[in-house]
Deep mutational scan, measured.
Amino acid sequence: MSIQHFRVALIPFFAAFCLPVFAHPETLVKVKDAEDQLGARVGYIELDLNSGKILESFRPEERFPMMSTFKVLLCGAVLSRVDAGQEQLGRRIHYSQNDLVEYSPVTEKHLTDGMTVRELCSAAITMSDNTAANLLLTTIGGPKELTAFLHNMGDHVTRLDRWEPELNEAIPNDERDTTMPAAMATTLRKLLTGELLTLASRQQLIDWMEADKVAGPLLRSALPAGWFIADKSGASERGSRGIIAALGPDGKPSRIVVIYTTGSQATMDERNRQIAEIGASLIKHW
């Protein structure tokens, strides 16, 4: 067993022997300050990975656009099909120029040879490739089937209704393509630590998230040396920005953090900075 597999395998073990964890309200002060700075709603939740206990939250049951954070859930659904023998990570999918949508930095380079399901999930999570996400959605039956998968997991909140890039419209009070911080955190925890996926698939999912290449300005920018993070960011219209992450010190994840914001007129750089500052406060008061 590799060191990485050993780390994931021990998560349920540590759950039975973990020391108590305590929240620090200073982080919530920073979350509220971020709302003021951005002139927008901010949703935040911090969940103990082992016990599932909510350590701190702000607007945990308000809806926010999922943006590209849905791609982790999508690849979780794909992996569940792999575990059930209904899909193969090595299966090659061919597509055409007509399938390409905006922001497809990986898939646009493989029009001649296609990409495997594994490569598409990697592109969707690590590079947030939109065409990769659409091709993967097709393999499971579309957005409604992803919503059904989540319902079967016990998540009756999170929903995907449209494809890339339309799902990023982020219209106020529109429940399409939205989640709540509490629902997303719970669902992510189930995918990473529960029995829904095999150990190999849980490890694959967290490996893809750990290799995320487009979330550098967010929580990763505040991460001390030696800390672990596996994450997925998202951005969409109407000043929306978000990130879902499993992180912790000593090279292993111990908490789930979900941050969403929407309705801001601030620049992308400012939205990134506010999320990074929330992360810095979280780490300082860990």
Score class of each variant (00 low, 15 high):
L192I: 13
D250F: 11
A9R: 08
H151A: 12
S51G: 07
E61V: 11
A225I: 11
K232R: 02
F228I: 03
E35L: 00
K213N: 08
R159G: 01
Q204E: 06
V82A: 08
M180C: 04
S96A: 13
G43E: 00
L160F: 06
L218Q: 02
A16V: 13
L38H: 05
F22L: 12
D212N: 14
R118D: 09
S233G: 11
R238A: 13
I3M: 08
Y260S: 00
G263D: 03
T126P: 06
A170S: 08
S80Q: 15
H94D: 11
P217L: 05
K30G: 01
P249H: 02
L150S: 05
Y103V: 05
A123V: 04
R238M: 12
P165D: 02
S201L: 06
P65C: 02
Y95W: 12
P12M: 14
Q88T: 14
T178V: 02
L79V: 03
E166A: 12
S51R: 04
R238G: 13
L205V: 03
T186K: 15
G194W: 05
Y260E: 00
G85Y: 07
E166T: 08
K190T: 12
L188V: 09
M153D: 05
W163M: 09
Q4K: 15
R162L: 02
V82D: 02
P12H: 12
A200F: 07
R220T: 01
N98A: 08
G216R: 05
E210Q: 12
L79D: 00
T186P: 04
L89A: 05
G251R: 08
Y103C: 08
M115C: 05
L219V: 04
V72S: 02
A9T: 15
D269M: 11
L197R: 01
L135I: 08
T198H: 13
I243A: 00
L74A: 03
K144N: 09
K213Q: 15
D161G: 02
E237K: 15
H156P: 10
G251H: 10
R189C: 10
R202S: 14
E108A: 13
N134Q: 01
S221P: 05
C18G: 13
G226H: 09
P60L: 06
V157D: 10
R238V: 10
D174V: 02
L188G: 01
N130T: 05
M127I: 10
G154E: 05
M153R: 04
A200Y: 14
D250K: 10
V106E: 10
A211L: 08
L120V: 01
G85D: 07
K213I: 07
E108K: 07
